[in-house]
Design a protein around this nucleic acid. Structure first.
Length: 222
DNA sequence: CCAGACGTTGTT
DNA sequence: GTCTGG
DNA sequence: CCAGACGTTGTT
DNA sequence: GTCTGG
């Protein structure tokens, strides 16, 4: 799955490499983005505007906003039929910007080992995501999103049994097309090629979301 | 009809 | 909101 | 994802 | 064990 990720590159660099519209939200590099925090997303392939949405999807009909804490991922295999996701899958697909993600490997005993996964060229990339808007009783609107998951590729498989859906430069704009049909979308929700990725163990300091600093993206022995 | 669920992951 | 179960 | 809390009463 | 918060 994907429960923590990074966006460390300079905003100008991200904008250029992902061919996005201008954005000003990301003023600080993020080394440890955790659920419930604001994450940068793109909803429209024409404007390519970047907005911040809370990570953890809350369906528009949910009474309990805490449901978002458990909706940080959506299984791509079932997203079209689950009540919490199917409407967003049909009408509200988005891209979530990242340049790395963490997965934890369970050991025979003792604490899990966190690994950082990146593209070999260190470029930024985009997760396939869904977003939702909910009217709040006290007024205002809650904007939330979730990251789709799929089977792991050969690289991720050694660490975990799920990985986030990553869309390449061609797939990402197709994903945002409002009239894209199911068979096309289905084909996009596949494991990213392992030969374009790398990974290495990192400090368990990443376990604490408050450790949002460069140390947690540095390789360690393990 | 109304009431209640609606999710993922990992582990057992 | 929409579906399932009673 | 991981870490940390997990309760009531009455009083300040 | 299960839920909430980040």
């Amino acid at each position: 799955m994907c429960g923590r990720f990074t966006l460390t590159l300079d905003p100008g660099e991200i904008q250029t490499l992902l061919e996005l519209g201008p954005f000003v939200h990301i003023v600080q590099p993020r080394y440890n983005i955790a659920p419930s925090q604001p994450v940068p997303i793109v909803k429209n392939a024409d404007t390519r505007t970047v907005e911040l949405y809370r990570w953890g999807l809350v369906p528009s009909w949910a009474d309990d906003l805490n449901i978002g804490n458990r909706m940080i991922n959506a299984r791509s295999e079932t997203v079209h039929e689950k009540p919490s996701f199917r409407s967003a899958f049909k009408y509200r697909r988005c891209l979530i910007l990242a340049d790395g993600f963490f997965e934890w490997r369970a050991e025979q005993s003792g604490p899990k080992t966190p690994f950082l996964f990146k593209l070999k060229n260190d470029n930024p990339f985009t997760f396939a995501g869904l977003y939702e808007h909910k009217e709040l009783p006290e007024g205002g609107e809650l904007h939330t999103c979730t990251i789709l998951t799929c089977e792991p590729n050969e690289l991720v498989r050694d660490v975990h049994n799920r990985m986030p859906v990553i869309l390449d430069e061609k797939a990402r704009w197709t994903w945002l097309k409002p009239d894209a049909d199911q068979s096309v979308l289905r084909a996009l929700m596949a494991p990213f090629p392992a030969d374009a990725m790398k990974c290495f163990p990192v400090s368990r300091a990443v376990n604490l979301p408050e450790n949002d600093r460069p140390e947690v993206v540095e390789p360690v022995a393990g």
